[in-house]
Design a protein around this nucleic acid. Structure first.
Lengths: 203, 203
DNA sequence: TATGAAACATACCATCCGGTATGTAAATCA
DNA sequence: TGATTTACATACCGGATGGTATGTTTCATA
């Protein structure tokens, strides 16, 4: 059971994240944030000791959710197949499902938003972003290496850069999607990535 | 011959662009900008009637340069080959060359930087970004359609989403590159894209 | 060499910014 | 029930912000 305090804290985080993806971190003042929440400064600084504290908490939450989503997806895929290639294709399919239903463009990636304002943040906050990308790369690379051992690729490719390609896909698709206001760009790029993997490892 | 005024104007634009890619648009105050340039407010507001004016001028210049680069690359490729597939592969190769020599990560794409602060800008500025993506997509799609007519693809793909993939590649690679401070991510992703195109259209 | 415009510099302003100090109602619990 | 903590609200502060008004210097040109 979440108390009222935790509920308000979550409301602040959710609203802040949505606003930051549209205005940027520096573009979201504490005043504007609390006004759109119907709160006061007292409330905000009760839950977060500074704006930097909010920024750090926010990106940590976002990063944790991202890692969790990937691990859950992989776990589901591993239950459905023992073959690493099939597992990877299933994971891609699960991400497709996530973005298939959207009528509006995905609001964007908070990591990318931070990356383009990197100097606004302290080292601890910047490190959270780094760790997220390193961790995702590591786990994805491990899966792709299993695939490459079993299926010799039809072109000279490198496992970790193929993993980077998967992460990069979302970052790129989100930017185009946000600007062009087209909801289906991410799904289309996921399908291209899936096709690429199939063409690479198909005998 | 550029007078001293035009030179200062260019210096402001160049410095502003570099700073915005690190701090975000809202994170670069006019004060900080002129301080790092060794100028005064009088100088800045002589060259730009407002900060918004700087933002608009900056993104227009960046967009124009991007379109120009693509058209130049395509023109060079067309001189080297009559085949649309070879032309596309050559264009990708030319972009590879551009990013091959870098020792530091590419500072990022100003369009993406703006996209993640979209609400900071007026409609005219937002439109410049839109037009850039639409135009690039259109010209790239046209080339890919020529390829598809001549070479039936080995998988069911769509020309415009494949074009989106090329633009998306840079946006994604820049984000990873900036965060991980690895200079070669963009080149690696360009090589993957080239491999994908080859696998798609190879008989 | 006089003149006007371009290219800056200086001083100032209203507003907004993150942050603090203090107060208070409500929930928790010994 | 009394004491303490949690969860807010109010009022205020010093500094930064974008922008303006008013200079001064440089420089081409007539």
């Amino acid at each position: 059971m979440a108390g009222k305090g935790e509920d308000t804290r979550k409301r602040i985080l959710d609203t802040a994240q949505a606003m930051i993806l549209d205005h940027g971190y520096a573009g979201v003042s504490v005043d504007k944030l609390i006004k759109s929440l119907g709160l006061t400064k007292g409330a905000f600084f009760h839950h977060f000791k500074s704006k930097r504290d909010l920024a750090r908490t926010l990106i940590q939450r976002y990063s944790d959710e991202g890692v969790q989503l990937f691990r859950d997806s992989l776990a589901r895929a591993q239950k459905l197949s023992d073959d690493p290639l099939q597992q990877f294709l299933l994971v891609i399919g699960l991400y497709e499902e996530l973005f298939e239903g959207l009528t509006e463009p995905f609001p964007g990636c908070l990591l990318a938003s931070y990356v383009y304002e990197m100097q606004q943040f302290d080292e601890e906050t910047r490190d959270i972003i780094n760790v997220e990308f390193y961790l995702s790369r590591k786990e994805l690379t491990s899966l792709i290496e299993q695939i490459m051992e079993k299926y010799p690729p039809n072109a000279e490719v490198n496992a970790s850069s193929l993993a980077d390609g998967f992460m990069s896909l979302f970052e790129g698709a989100f930017v185009l999607s946000k600007s062009l206001k087209e909801a289906d760009i991410t799904v289309q790029q996921l399908r291209h990535y899936k096709t690429y993997v199939e063409l690479l490892f198909r005998q």
